[in-house]
């Protein structure tokens, strides 16, 4: 019983990390329909940002890295969108191959820059310890995920930029003939979505080592979260991320890492058989 309870914060924090990654994907994948395989490498870039900032910020690097990693990963996303992805809109298969290639290049670049072995980021001393079974570092990740969800929700529903973004997602051609610069909205969407991956990367440094392949461990699960939650649906992503995180960590606890992955995939496949559209869907007269 105690072991089951102990596993809870682990599952929840994995869910929180998945949520942070999936939040970024709800922008680029859920709303723009771009399957960006390099999203995982933006996570890795965020994590290495925290690693590099240690020289300057010491043990507070993780905190300093949050905005910096958002900017770094965001800019990488922006450059990728401008330089390559925008030429492939409406061609998902080509985009997939293209971004996969970019992903491999970025991983190799990280190996050349930082070496193949994993590196460690020191957590701030005030994040060590915990209340009862809840370690502070995992609580911090959950708070970060909740904060990011609220920020994204507020941005989408309360700001003029968010409104413009939703307009473009709902009807791109109409948005263009209503005077909206859709190209600029795409850039902004990509910047924010990729930046959120950077923040997820910083969060990951709190619970494990940083390596060139860091992103690849999480990217598939994050795509599953977006699909299971319903494309572009914030609520769905939250529920699916927490569920997947818990399922992952308990399955791993009772069996082993490889079998856990099998269990998760089977569960997702079964779920999508019943609800292929995901947990939530956009519904209205105009879309039916």
């Amino acid at each position: 019983m105690e072991a089951i309870v102990n596993q809870l914060p682990i599952g929840l924090s994995i869910g929180a990390v998945l949520l942070l990654i999936a939040l970024g994907l709800t922008f680029t994948f859920g709303q723009m329909g771009v399957i960006n395989m390099a999203h995982g490498e933006f996570i890795m870039a965020g994590a290495y940002t925290a690693y590099l900032l240690q020289d300057w910020a010491g043990r507070q690097a993780v905190i300093v890295a949050l905005p910096v990693a958002f900017g770094v990963a965001g800019l990488m996303g922006l450059v990728l969108e401008r330089a390559a992805i925008r030429h492939f809109y409406g061609r998902p298969l080509d985009t997939l191959l293209l971004t996969w290639g970019v992903s491999l290049v970025l991983q190799q670049a990280a190996r050349d820059l930082f070496g193949a072995p994993n590196v460690q980021v020191q957590a701030p001393s005030w994040l060590q310890g915990g209340i009862g079974i809840l370690p502070y570092n995992r609580l911090f990740i959950m708070a970060l995920a909740i904060g990011s969800v609220v920020a994204v929700w507020a941005y989408m529903s309360r700001t003029s930029q968010g409104r413009r973004m939703r307009a473009v997602m709902q009807n791109r051609q109409l948005a263009a003939v209503m005077g909206i610069n859709t190209g600029r909205v795409d850039q902004r969407t990509f910047f924010i979505g990729s930046g959120l991956a950077g923040i997820a990367g910083v969060a990951l440094t709190l619970i494990g080592p940083v390596g060139p392949a860091l992103g690849t461990y999480y990217i598939v699960d994050a795509f599953l979260v977006v699909v299971a939650g319903g494309l572009g649906q914030l609520r769905g992503a939250v529920i699916a991320a927490v569920a997947l995180g818990l399922l992952n960590s308990y399955a791993e606890f009772w069996t082993n890492a490889s079998l856990a992955k099998v269990i998760v995939f089977v569960a997702i496949i079964a779920f999508l058989q019943v609800r292929p559209q995901g947990l939530f869907v956009l519904r209205s007269r105009a879309l039916t």
């Binding site: 003029s160 409104r163 709902q170 009807n171 005077g179």
Partner: peptide, 16 residues
Amino acid sequence: FPQLSVMGNLLVTLEA
């Protein structure tokens, strides 16, 4: 824009 309110439809155009 089906998911925006009527006001949202007008505002998003005004802002652009």
